[in-house]
């Protein structure tokens, strides 16, 4: 009786979730298989012929291989800023959790402020121009680091707080020098939360649209999110290419999702609950 109810409920939930959450993705995939005239109809129909490969080639080669440049740029920004985030946030989280000083209150306030306050765009551009960082990849990397530090620090601090201090002290007695305690004892133990950080932050930074829009103008600096505007024009949008492009930039998060589902969920909920 109960079992039947749960099966009926389950089937209804599967059907509902399929319509709401899966069909849009199927639509993207179907569109990516179509040629330009059929895609212009924008309907939910079976592709006439297999055009995915042509579409891919066209998307990749458009505007002087802009897609490739964009993927390289996005990869560089993501990898370098996530590396910096992990190292810097782990250092801050470690000392913040271990050393109780009057500064802690201020630092925690600044972390919360960083999570809430939207960045002041134009003054940032003005400052970056002064520092010769505006429109450069390294400037963009530093921006991503600055904006995402608070979240990473919160994750690390919470984790370090669960590591008993005895371990630090045992290491000190064993002859660890100050930096040894962090690099040889704490950092290796932080591995699980580092994986979480890497996964959550790289998805966020890879998908970032707003910040590159402001701070990284220019075609040679485009990131993948900005390539979507290549195939959109008011009158003559190439929907097949547009959706091939969307499909292409959805692949990296999909891979991450397939391999690190658990870490992402753990990280997002942990960070959220602490924050």
């Amino acid at each position: 009786m109960k079992r039947r109810a749960s099966i009926i409920g389950g089937v209804a939930a599967i059907a509902g979730s399929f319509v709401v959450f899966v069909i849009p993705f199927i639509f993207i995939i179907l569109m990516a298989f179509k040629d330009k005239p059929q895609s212009a109809l924008r309907d939910f129909s079976w592709p006439q012929g297999f055009h995915l490969w042509d579409n891919l080639v066209q998307v990749v080669t458009t505007r002087n291989w802009m897609m490739i440049t964009a993927f390289i740029n996005s990869a560089l920004i993501t990898v370098i800023s996530v590396t910096l985030l992990v190292v810097l946030a782990a250092m801050v989280g470690f000392v913040l959790a271990r050393r109780k000083t009057r500064m802690n209150g201020l630092i925690e306030f600044l972390i919360l402020a960083g999570l809430m306050i939207p960045p002041a765009v134009v003054p940032t551009i003005w400052l970056m121009q002064g520092l010769k960082l505006f429109g450069t990849l390294h400037g963009m990397i530093l921006i991503e680091v600055a904006y995402n530090l608070p979240f990473s620090i919160i994750l690390y601090r919470a984790f370090v707080a669960t590591i008993p201090r005895d371990l630090d002290e045992a290491a000190i007695i064993d002859g660890a020098r100050p930096l040894d305690v962090f690099f040889r004892i704490i950092l290796p133990m932080l591995w699980p939360v580092t994986v979480t950080n890497i996964v959550v932050q790289s998805v966020g930074i890879f998908n970032d649209f707003t910040n590159p829009l402001y701070y990284l103008p220019g075609n040679q600096n485009a990131t993948v999110q900005l390539t979507l505007y290549n195939f959109q024009s008011q009158y003559n949008t190439s929907y097949n290419l547009l959706f091939t492009n969307i499909l292409l930039i959805t692949v990296p998060p999909l891979i991450v999702f397939l391999f690190f589902n658990r870490q992402i969920v753990a990280g997002m909920t942990a960070g959220a609950v602490k924050g």
Partner: peptide, 12 residues
């Protein structure tokens, strides 16, 4: 050398 109540072994 010191032996701690919690043993403080390095878990990794």
């Amino acid at each position: 050398a010191m032996v701690f109540q919690s043993y403080a072994l390095y878990p990794h």
